[in-house]
Design a protein around this nucleic acid. Structure first.
Lengths: 226, 226
DNA sequence: TCAAAAGTGTTAAGTTTACACCCATGA
DNA sequence: TCATGGGTGTAAACTTAACACTTTTGA
């Protein structure tokens, strides 16, 4: 069936590559894996895999992510396809790049060793091969754009967080300091950030108000604006 | 060589699909082609083709465009890859979608018949098959975003144009009326729109100043801001 | 002479930025 | 008691939006 009409045309390997962002201690991080296949066996690479016949591109990316992190709740979006001829010296591979945001606290650290993965600060990236640096740059620039008009940065944090914590997340993504008052003003204007009665004492003696993200209200608002 | 390392993995047909925008008489238009292959033989579809082994994805898109329009000077950018399993009933095809802007005045109309193509107003789209409507929507929304911070809309017009003409182009893309004074203010602020001494009498009795686009200055400014 | 498009500035509204001090608490 | 991070408002700068009349000229 898959050969019914187009049998004269060439076929190619198709892979997904996921730039996976996490956050810890004020730093935006990316998850890499040591390649276990030639060429460049052992070198760091974004998490990727070949697309299977029974899955869409998005599903392939999601599979790679969940099977190697143990996390199901994440933000995932396609960046674009990379298909230069010599991009992979191991053969012609069309790679569809994705980026993802997840909460490291949910990460199953046993899988780190199993898959030989490693978190790296984005301000200290390793040497990357193929066109992986292009993907990285695209991912970071897309992420920077996107956090200005959607609250996806929340996916890097636990369900409960303080305003200072979000601010640090934004700062780590944008790589610049933000004004505390202006930042809080903007956040609190958005109706899906809700202040709880709870106080987080972990970050300061005085304690900071704990906020949560109202997913339901957010998706209602989002749909409304379409 | 292309099989050296990954020979156990599945391979797929990879195609490009181009959403090609043109402009005429106040209307934003898209170029379609009648399919000459089953399934859906004869139905309208964006211009597309399979990726060859000796070309990148961008090159494939550019080839499809130039060989079927006769135009070499155009704006071309990737949208994203589409790879749902059943998207093409003729077989599994991963399609990388592009959008392009070109000046219809340069279009070789002989090619229209040769390739069985047809310009359609975007506000009057035909029934589309596969996931082509998704691509269309993505292309239009990307185009709308992009004209707010880059002057790509110029690619729809001849080298020389009047301010009223550009305004109509913007209006046709955004599908809304713009304020004449505010619009002209914004355009004239950009240093790469240069007013010439020439007058275009074709659109009015009084005549309108002819402007050109300074590509050199634009690319210098653009590079400066990187 | 008049219809039709070209051309032109100002004001109000809204948004963004800059900026500094008091508060509550645990050590 | 003091060091630490939490919390708060206002004014200036800038950007965007709204708005109406005069000019030119060919038919």
């Amino acid at each position: 069936m898959s050969q019914k009409y187009y049998s004269n045309e060439s076929k190619y390997h198709v892979a997904v590559d996921c730039i996976i962002f996490g956050y810890e201690e004020g730093k935006l991080q990316v998850l890499f894996q040591h390649r276990n296949i030639e060429p460049y066996n052992g070198e760091l690479t974004p998490l990727g895999g070949f697309v299977r016949e029974d899955e869409t591109l998005d599903e392939a990316a999601y599979r790679v992510l969940t099977e190697r992190t143990g996390i199901w709740d994440l933000f995932l979006e396609q960046l674009e396809a990379f298909g230069d001829i010599g991009r992979d010296p191991g053969g012609r591979v069309i790679s569809v790049a994705y980026y993802a945001l997840l909460n490291k606290a949910n990460y199953n650290t046993k899988l780190l060793d199993k898959f030989n993965c490693k978190w790296v600060d984005v301000d200290n990236l390793p040497v990357l091969y193929f066109d992986h640096m292009k993907m990285m740059k695209k991912a970071i620039s897309r992420l920077r754009d996107k956090i200005s008009y959607t609250p996806i940065a929340m996916k890097l944090l636990p369900e409960e967080f303080t305003l200072s914590q979000i601010q640090k997340v934004y700062q780590s993504i944008l790589n610049e300091e933000l004004d505390k008052r202006n930042f809080r003003k903007k956040i609190c204007e958005m109706p899906y950030f809700v202040k709880t009665e709870k106080i987080d004492k972990s970050g300061s003696k005085r304690g900071a108000a704990i906020y949560t993200f109202d997913h339901k209200q957010y998706s209602e608002l989002k749909n409304f604006h379409l």
